[in-house]
Design a protein around this nucleic acid. Structure first.
Lengths: 113, 113
DNA sequence: CCTCCGCATAGACATCTGTCAATATCGACC
DNA sequence: GGTCGATATTGACAGATGTCTATGCGGAGG
């Protein structure tokens, strides 16, 4: 099981000071989780939806991929702490977690500032 | 050969609207380039250095990895358009390119805003 | 209770990725 | 021009990753 990776909000921007090996090991999995075209689109689809949540049934239709493959990608995003999972009746809804993405943005920003 | 990937400054934040498949394919390689602990540290080391540039000779010493491995990672960051390469005398200097990282930060930011 | 539907898991497979040792390249300096 | 020092390239290899098919699981409705 992967850690929720909330342990990121600590870090100064990339260009502020050299990142420690430990910080890099902690942050890289978060970037890996979104460094895939399918997962990027999934995250965007969910985050741009009403209430930043979407039903798996809708997500499956948006891709030319098998249902298990989508499920696999959603699992990775969930394991990275970027999505929350909630079952409502027959359907499963995934909701975007704003914190980690905001932290990543802060990490990458301020390089050329 | 990989494309310089400047074709990113176009995109609205992730949560603004669903990302197109084409945009995802264009952006994912950029994220892949920084989704590695070693490359994250390399980028941070260079970006946080004076003039946002550093000599390869210094970078090699900062890691417990072979010289070819560091060279390989630098090549990937360069191919992604995140580093510029300049040879001065015997040494090679890499400089951080601010644009792409700033664009990525803009892409990820504004999710929970 | 049996079946169907939505989603997850398991297993298999090809490809990609990170690493190293060995070697090449390219200047500088003697 | 020969040698040496700094990087890059090549080839090899183990392990991670993305995809599929087949199967499992749990709830809703007949």
């Amino acid at each position: 099981m992967l850690e929720p990776a909330e342990a990121l909000a600590c870090c100064p921007p990339l260009a502020r000071e050299p990142m420690s090996a430990a910080a890099a090991e902690r942050i890289a999995p978060l970037l890996k989780a979104i460094a895939d075209p399918v997962r990027l689109r999934l995250l965007s689809l969910i985050a741009s939806h009403a209430d930043a949540e979407a039903c798996v049934c809708d997500l499956n239709d948006a891709f030319d991929l098998s249902q298990p493959t989508i499920s696999h990608h959603l699992k990775q995003l969930h394991a990275a702490g970027l999505l929350e999972r909630e079952k409502r009746g027959v359907w499963v809804y995934y909701r975007a977690v704003p914190g980690p993405l905001r932290d990543l943005a802060a990490l990458l920003g301020g390089v050329g500032a």
